[in-house]
């Protein structure tokens, strides 16, 4: 999933202060799962903003809406009914959702209430960790299902570097050395012999380095 965290309250208040009517829009997908921008978080932020502004002697009219998917034009269209009653839109989706709203509602300012973080997985209750950088050319088949691009601090493809210490990365003992994890897994799978195959220099064009990316499925495109 795409993970996100709510911005600090003061930063959001800066966006909102000049206005009196906001449309606060959550998303029912990834940001709901990572507890950053679902229906529940929309309610909490709405109450928080109104209270904070009340202390400043202002009233804020908040319309709360949580869409099924904010990155999908079909659902973003649903905001049409509320848009005229709002000065601005405050989005609690990832950056994709914020931009979809900006594309559809050209005359209304849209502000992000979240910082979009990474593509990750839930490690345990309340902890999410980065797993994928979307490099566009997946290596997981040769690294035992563990990604060195997303999870090595130097994104080394022929690791581990000389800084690996007792399974941890040199930059912090809180960071696992992904090459230790890969090696342990290759051993468990009886695939140690693969280790000495040199992984060639990567063609980063499939990643962000090749410019903004697009998928065109001719079988589906209208």
């Amino acid at each position: 999933m795409i993970t996100a965290e709510r911005k600090p309250m003061e930063e959001i208040l800066e966006f909102v202060r000049p206005y009196s009517r906001i449309l606060l829009v959550g998303c029912n997908e990834c940001v709901t799962v990572c507890a950053a921008g679902g229906r529940k978080e929309v309610g909490i932020l709405s109450a928080g903003l109104q209270m904070a502004l009340m202390k400043e002697g202002k009233t804020l009219d908040v319309k709360e809406v949580t869409l099924e998917r904010q990155c999908d034009p079909e659902y973003v269209e649903e905001l049409v009914t509320y848009i005229d009653q709002a000065d601005i839109i405050l989005s609690m989706a990832c950056g994709c959702g914020v931009q979809e709203i900006a594309r559809r509602y050209k005359e209304k300012p849209v502000y992000p209430a979240l910082n979009t973080k990474f593509m990750g997985a839930s490690e345990r209750q309340g902890i999410w960790a980065e797993r994928c950088q979307g490099c566009g050319d997946c290596l997981l088949g040769i690294t035992g299902g563990i990604c060195p691009i997303a999870r090595c601090s130097k994104r080394i493809m022929n690791g581990p570097c000389g800084g690996s210490t007792q399974g941890k990365c040199e930059i912090s003992s809180d960071v696992d050395c992904v090459w230790q994890l890969i090696w342990d897994r290759l051993k468990a799978l009886g695939m140690e012999n693969r280790y000495e195959d040199i992984m060639a220099a990567k063609d980063w064009r499939s990643s962000r380095d090749g410019g903004p990316r697009k998928i065109i499925r001719e079988d589906l495109a209208e």
């Binding site: 570097c161 000389g162 690996s164 230790q180 000495e196 040199i198």
Partner: peptide
């Protein structure tokens, strides 16, 4: 080459690479 980094068992293999 760092012969002292972990995992030690990979240090010869990485040199071979």
């Amino acid at each position: 080459a760092n012969p002292f980094a972990d995992p030690f068992e990979l240090r010869v293999a990485r040199l071979a690479k």
